[in-house]
């Protein structure tokens, strides 16, 4: 080594947050919050303690899964799929006007705000909450489930659609406008070709998501396989529950596979 300088023998990595006080403060805050949340959670410890033997018991009663009532099972699964299909179809169709209204670069300000408001509210509330309200309004059964999934699909696809339209390069819009095209022609020539593949992809993805969600809305009585599952749990019919769970996993799998296949073809 050429230079005889004495080099330092200690080095500490600079922290992510430079100021040590701020860093320690943040860590303390997080720890305090975790302690607080641990402390305030009301835990029935004896009951939790009994949980592990109960889990063993539950699993022993789940095995072997009971597929003897396969007709009921199949009906539930079929209903879930139908609910998902209907909801996706109508959601996809009605998402187009809502999505157009929610695109900042197309819609007038008040229309834009209204559409965005609808999307935000429906997106924020969990599907199961929406489902239970529909159950109260329309009674038990698949109708409430279909409406729930429809609302969820509508706002999801509309949001994606609106974002795609907003992210479109303005050049092509201008070019078609420059030819003197009217708004409908603008839709057909400038917007549709750019958005269509993504729109179809999102819709197919939503069909897949609807199949997954259709298995839960039944838990509050909105039809489908979830309703059968809830009933089996209430009757402590655990071997049937496992059969239903396995069917749900299989259904979700097929849905995901199908959706991936179609989306692969769209590209």
């Amino acid at each position: 080594m050429s230079s005889p300088a004495v080099y330092p023998t200690a080095w500490k990595p600079p922290g992510l947050i430079g100021n040590p006080a701020a860093r320690r403060g943040l860590v303390a805050l997080v720890v305090l919050y975790l302690l607080w949340s641990f402390g305030t959670i009301e835990v029935d410890w004896p009951r939790v303690g009994r949980g592990f033997p109960r889990a063993a018991d539950l699993f022993s009663r789940m095995f072997p899964p009971d597929f003897s009532r396969w007709e009921l099972l199949l009906k539930g699964v079929g209903e879930s799929v139908q609910m998902a299909l209907v909801a996706s179809f109508f959601g996809m169709a009605l998402a187009v006007p809502v999505g157009l209204c929610a695109a900042r670069n197309l819609a007038p300000r008040p229309v834009y705000l209204l559409a965005r408001g609808i999307i935000v509210i429906t997106r924020t509330l969990h599907e199961v909450i929406v489902a239970i309200i529909f159950v109260k309004v329309f009674g038990f059964g698949p109708l409430a489930g279909v409406l729930t999934l429809f609302v969820a699909s509508l706002s999801f696809i509309a949001k994606m659609l609106a974002e795609d339209i907003e992210n479109m390069p303005p050049g092509s819009l201008e070019a078609i406008r420059a030819t003197g095209a009217s708004f409908p022609k603008l839709l057909v020539y400038a917007i549709t070709p750019q958005i269509l593949p993504r729109y179809l992809g999102v819709s197919i993805y939503r069909l897949d998501a609807n199949i997954r969600h259709s298995t839960v809305v039944g838990i509050v009585g909105a039809g489908g396989i979830g309703q059968v599952l809830q009933a089996s749990f209430n009757r402590y019919d655990y071997d049937f529950s496992l059969a239903i769970l396995i069917s749900i996993v299989a259904l979700v799998f097929i849905g995901e596979f199908f959706s991936a296949w179609i989306r692969g073809r769209l590209r």
Binding site: M1, S2, S3, A5, Y7, P8, T9, A10, W11, K12, P13
Partner: peptide, 18 residues
């Protein structure tokens, strides 16, 4: 812990210079 022996750190500073 990112705690390396002092001689390693001295060597590292030397090489950085070099």
């Amino acid at each position: 812990r990112r705690r390396y022996p002092p001689e390693d750190i001295r060597m590292a500073y030397g090489l950085l210079d070099r």
